[in-house]
Design a protein around this nucleic acid. Structure first.
Lengths: 255, 255
DNA sequence: TTTTCAATGTCGGAT
DNA sequence: ATCCGACGTTGAAAA
């Protein structure tokens, strides 16, 4: 990080001065972090109030603002990118107003005590590379349709229907049309319905036509299974962990 | 915050020593934050790699670990609560291994340069109070069904069917059964399907029975509207912003 | 811009 | 523990 400026245990005036100098008036974008005791109000899609407590506030370069409590993955309050933060003293509290004009939302964070504040220019041009998403599973099936069943031919990917995009479309060994819907994690009721709708759509104007629907997913709850049955649809167990590579178990044991 | 200890620009050995003393061996749970240049690997439900860049790592009291880039609301890598962090030097890198045994997942963060590291005991017992969630809208309709239409009577909330819980159930002014599905934000295709399934379920064994289905939502896309039409279902515009209180616009204008 | 759908979704509640 | 649905979901891709 090119520059990291910070204050340890500053007063509210000192904090405001620091933020104005290091973030607001800085020629380069900076990420701001504040640790301290604060209260949070939010108004927008909903409305919320969070009483005093010790938290971490981060205001990012793109306006994203998040407030983290000492536990939990999700920020307790936030504004997404595109928001704008302004800083001021209000009733002897260091207050950050984060306004998202486009979304018509705003959040106000008021600190009565600041343990630490710091501003950093962060250089990060890397983007995370992920393997194991739905796209990868679809790729794998395209490549080798026999993974689903012998004789299966895939002819289209992301085939359009009136009700959305079909993941995979093709014909089985008896030339019966097959619709395949892929889910990377446990099958849901909604996935079953989605598949059903695709099949129904394709049958339009030819109601007695035989069209198979297959839901490919690593796991399926009882209820979803019943639903598929009711709709005359099928299910294939298909998890990327077994298909894409199978070294997960051993390497996890290392710890 | 009772205690906030920190180091500015420490070396990797110094960092490890600090973390062991302040976090691992601390009798009280602490939240750890590290700013610096790191690389991240993840393996579990999927697999990912993130090349060098300047980021913020937070390891919370409950094991939650998140890595934030200088923009975006979502952590670029993370582990949810229940994970456990261990700290070590590896190839002259300060490395944090976060392992989630239950989920069979792990994440490794390696720092080559640390700008700042600090550990804080955070006291936060407050929980956010939110108004404007689906529950609140359902409450409002329960209280005054006329908001939906004159003569409507609600008799059941969270009525069970074979395919799930119906938000609201009752009878209209002509004693026709009505199923109401509430969505706090824009209606989705899946919501329309859900409602349809509820109505179908209730008709079971009495297929010609008239049962109305109403989707209550503040906004509905064209396609969902068509779907509802196809299924013989209805839609009522119902946004909590107008119904629960109506001072949002004026107060947002203040900024 | 709007719509649609995936996500290492996370989280809470109910069974 | 599994299952189910909401979320101030966010984010990306396509229309």
């Amino acid at each position: 990080m090119g520059v990291v400026e910070y204050l340890y245990g500053p007063g509210v005036e000192e904090t405001l001065d620091f933020v104005v100098r290091q973030v607001v008036q800085s020629p380069e974008k900076r990420v701001l972090m504040v640790l301290g005791s604060c209260q949070v109000r939010y108004q927008g899609r909903a409305r919320s109030f969070l009483d005093w407590g010790e938290r971490i506030l981060i205001v990012k370069e793109d306006g994203t603002s998040i407030i983290h409590q000492p536990s939990g993955r999700e920020p307790v309050n936030w504004q997404p990118h595109g928001a704008r933060a302004t800083y001021l003293l209000q009733d002897r509290l260091f207050t950050v107003h984060v306004v998202h004009r486009k979304n018509r939302e705003r959040m106000a964070v008021s600190f009565k005590k600041i343990e630490m504040v710091f501003a950093a220019r962060m250089d990060d041009r890397a983007r995370v590379q992920i393997v194991g998403m739905e796209r990868d599973i679809v790729d794998k099936i395209m490549e080798n349709p026999e993974l689903i069943e012998p004789g299966l031919r895939i002819t289209q990917r992301e085939k359009k229907t009136r009700s959305g995009l079909i993941d995979l479309f093709g014909y089985d060994r008896h030339h019966v049309p097959v619709v395949i819907e892929v889910k990377r994690s446990q099958a849901t009721i909604s996935a079953a319905q989605q598949l059903r709708m695709y099949v129904t759509d394709l049958k339009r104007g030819n109601d007695k036509a035989r069209i198979r629907g297959i839901l490919c997913t690593p796991r399926i709850p009882e209820m979803v299974c019943r639903l598929l049955d009711d709709y005359g649809l099928e299910y294939r167990e298909f998890g990327w962990q077994h298909q894409l590579f199978d070294d997960q178990q051993t390497s996890l044991e290392d710890y």
